[in-house]
Design a binder for these strands. Structure first.
Length: 472
RNA sequence: GCUCCCUUCGUCUAGCGGUUAGGACGCUGCCCUCUCACGGCGGUAACAGGGGUUCGAAUCCCCUAGGGAGUACCA
């Protein structure tokens, strides 16, 4: 049997961390098994579905690299198919029209609630024989009255539901459109889905769907219900924690492989391993290894993983991802060093790509002012002559390389009886305007000769002015 | 209310009858060091509670508590 999984989001919201985790597990399992992954947009709720949300889903999946083998399919394009089955079931007596009004149903539920009973439709229209003329009607499925439905869940184990707990659910609204549980099973069957991998919140729907599938004469797929992801405070994932558009993570400088790596470790593990490449995830992941308890979103760990992936990513990969962040920062890559060199110089000190760009700003743009504290501490008269000497050495270097630069600094420092720290930090402050940067040889080489000389001159003038002010 | 699911350090997790309960994030001490990082070596901190079963329970069973989901003409 070939494994076919599907990710079936509803475009009533954007693609967020929770839905991405579900998508990831579906995708990984399909890839792991050499099967297919299909994307299906469940847009039967026409009031709340929007084209913007469809874009958010499709774009988000593309950024993450969660490519579908089939789809996206849209349920709104399959209404004829659902209607045909509804009609057939009506003919076969597997479903019936229900004319109950909203008021009638509210009253029914209120009474049940008062008596402490389970709130459920009592099937009062089941026996109605005459094609009751008046008003709107919905179509309800005749759920079996007794017996059990057994779900052999891949992560949950065996879960048994009693049909007595289930009621006759609506499968077609009064406007003729299908409802969720119904369209899902028709599609899963038509699309030959072998494994339904979805959020825990659907476990309760599963017995209903299995009954529906049985009415269709279709064997049920394998089910795997994933534990939910909660917010950092243990409450339901909301805008406060991470239920934001997944594309925001791209904007904030996260690498998709880091996001996926973070997510795969929520509910799944492989020994002590924390960092996984996409290939490793595919090779090692199995839905049977997923655990059963909900987990909380931890932004710090995501950040750490992002840095780990930044550190290990090929420079070309980073340079491509960096471009959009330059635009965001109002910087032009051609105004400074090659992005690959930049990435190599800065990768160890950036948790995000946006951080990297902001840390490297002085490589692409001049700064107005030197950090006052750094200047006060490092640009002092004692360092004036060494700085001048370094400036001259830099000016006469035949080759502008990290090695040549480093050697120059070392030699000048030695000739003045200084250690690296005494000379390196003043250079850093003069050249970057701040006290933090990559190793000084790397920094200087990235800033470039022209800028370095200008900035050293500026620093030298500053010290001279200071010395003079001191004398007066 | 009813049905279903879940419960190991603050967080993510390992564990699948016998372990000094392991790893990771975070926090923290030290080392490395031209700054900041990265990295290395340590530290902090957990089996929700109560009953069983067993020679022996984090591991198996039951109860309680807590958390979550569903109970729609939402998905």
């Amino acid at each position: 049997m070939t494994v076919r999984t599907r990710f079936a989001p509803s475009p009533t919201g954007v693609l967020h961390l929770g839905s991405v985790r579900t998508a990831l597990f579906c995708w990984l399992y399909a890839r792991h098994c050499g099967g297919q992954f299909v994307l299906r947009i469940e847009d039967t709720d026409r009031q709340r579905s929007t084209p913007e949300n469809v874009d958010a889903i499709v774009d988000g999946m593309a950024w993450l690299g969660l490519d579908a083998d089939e789809g996206p399919f849209f349920q709104t394009e399959r209404f004829d198919r659902y209607r045909a089955i509804t009609e057939q079931w009506l003919d076969e007596g597997k479903a019936y029209r229900c004319y109950c009004t909203k008021e009638e149903l509210d009253e029914l539920r209120a009474g049940q609630k008062e008596r402490g009973e389970k709130m459920r439709y009592d099937g009062r229209c089941r026996q109605r024989s005459e094609p009751c003329k008046a008003g709107d009607s919905v179509v309800r499925f005749k759920n079996p009255l007794d017996g059990d439905v057994v779900v052999d869940d891949l992560v949950r184990g065996r879960v048994v539901f009693s049909n007595a707990e289930l009621d006759d659910l609506v499968i077609a609204r009064s406007d003729g459109t299908p409802t969720y549980n119904f369209s899902v099973i028709v599609d899963d069957h038509d699309m030959k889905i072998s494994h339904v991998i979805r959020g825990d919140d659907h476990l309760n729907n599963t017995p209903r769907q299995m009954n529906l599938l049985a009415a269709l004469g279709a064997p049920p797929p394998a089910y795997a219900h994933l534990p939910m992801i909660l917010g950092a405070d243990g409450a339901k994932l909301s805008k406060r924690h991470g239920a934001v558009d997944i594309r925001d993570y791209r904007e904030q400088g996260y690498l998709p492989e880091a996001v996926l790596n973070y997510l795969v470790r929520l509910g799944w593990s492989h020994g002590d391993q924390e960092v996984f490449s996409i290939e490793e995830m595919i090779r090692l992941f199995d839905v049977a290894d997923v655990n059963q308890s909900a987990s909380s979103f931890n932004p710090e760990k995501l950040l750490w993983l992002n840095q780990q992936h930044i550190i290990s990513a090929p420079a070309t990969r980073l340079s491509e991802a960096l471009i959009t962040h330059f635009e965001q920062a109002g910087l032009a890559p051609q105004d400074g060093p090659d992005l690959k060199d930049l990435a190599d110089g800065f990768r160890e000190r950036a948790e995000t790509l946006t951080q990297m760009v902001s840390n490297a700003r002085y490589c692409y743009e001049d700064f107005d002012e030197i950090d006052p504290k750094g200047a006060k501490k490092n640009l002092r008269p004692v360092i004036l002559e060494p700085l001048k000497a370094v400036r001259e050495r830099f000016a006469s270097l035949s080759e502008w390389s990290k090695e040549a630069i480093g050697q120059s600094i070392e030699e000048v420092a030695a000739s003045f009886g200084l250690n690296m720290g005494k000379l390196g930090q003043p250079i850093r402050v003069a050249v970057t305007g701040g006290t933090v940067s990559p190793p000084i040889d790397v920094t200087v080489s990235l800033v470039g000769r022209e800028r370095t000389l200008e900035r050293l001159d500026k620093g030298i003038r500053l010290i001279e002015a200071r010395a003079q002010a001191h004398e007066n």
